[in-house]
Write a protein that binds this DNA or RNA. Structure first.
Lengths: 151, 151
DNA sequence: CCATATGGTCAACGAAACTGACCAATGGAG
DNA sequence: CTCCATTGGTCAGTTTCGTTGACCATATGG
């Protein structure tokens, strides 16, 4: 039988990790998270976004992005502030709750990777991370690309 | 800075690979593919599915699954046949066009993995595949899990 | 300083999920 | 055997989250 494409293994692994992530986030009180929230929070942790940034990141119209930001603001993950340099624009800042969510996710991911290490060893897990980072950076000017919804 | 979670690297890699896959599939005439199609086709290549199989696989109601099958049948990727053992059920078979799509996808993935090998070497690519398969099988009774939509 | 481009929202519409209601066939308990 | 609860599937109506179209306020270059 031919090799299973890496992309397909990534999809299986993503399903496995993200399902477990959400189970454990729910235990910690983070419920009813839309899939889209994570992408916007991760990007807004790097720097404040504008609505258009969200639209580009999510590959959606700015109208849809605006509604998404409404929802995230209503749930307390994001704060709309006036933009310092452009009176038309709004500056979208991650809230303290948003940061707590990302920190919880990262702690849970570390636990899950610990379980992987018990199966294939920490060295293999580390090698996988290094190799993935190298490939991804090679196709993005030496930087990791943003985390975006799949196609 | 803390390690980037593997799950996030998988998401980046999936976006990259799947975007390129769809560009190249479009060049070969496969256009207007819904994301959901791939999951159903992959599973139906293994064995004919029922509507309920589709609903479980996709984690959707059987009503939604029925509509999805309608769409896939209309596009010629799937064929509904009477079920041999159960007169209520329908047997969903992948069509020749569906098989051609999966074969094209696999050929394109092989090309893309070749490009990865040019960056990190074929050995690393192979190691990644082996390690991923090992971890995934370890949590699924020695079998690879189905490819399912993420969360 | 005016014309055009850009950031954002409101309103109406559409795709694709959902819930509820239902029918036909199955299959185990008596 | 014959019920009748369970299961596979669809039809109809609703909800969610995207879309397109119209529009306003601010920015910006000729």
């Amino acid at each position: 039988m031919a090799d299973v494409p890496l992309a397909r293994l990534f999809a299986m692994a993503s399903y496995s990790l993200i399902s477990q992530l959400h189970e454990r986030l729910a235990e910690r009180g983070f419920r009813e998270l839309r899939p889209a929230f994570a992408f916007v929070l991760l990007a807004s942790r790097e720097r404040p976004l504008t609505g258009n940034d969200v639209a580009r990141l999510m590959a959606m119209t700015k109208q849809a992005a605006s509604k998404l930001v409404d929802a995230m603001e209503a749930e307390g993950y994001l704060v709309r502030k006036p933009h310092p340099d452009d009176a038309r624009a709004k500056s979208l800042h991650i809230s303290a709750k948003g940061k707590r969510l990302l920190e919880a996710a990262e702690q849970i991911y570390a636990e899950l990777e610990g379980e992987w290490a018990r199966v294939i060893g920490a060295g293999r897990v580390g090698a996988m991370r290094r190799d993935l980072m190298e490939v991804l950076k090679a196709s993005h000017d030496g930087e990791l690309p943003p985390v975006r919804p799949v196609w």
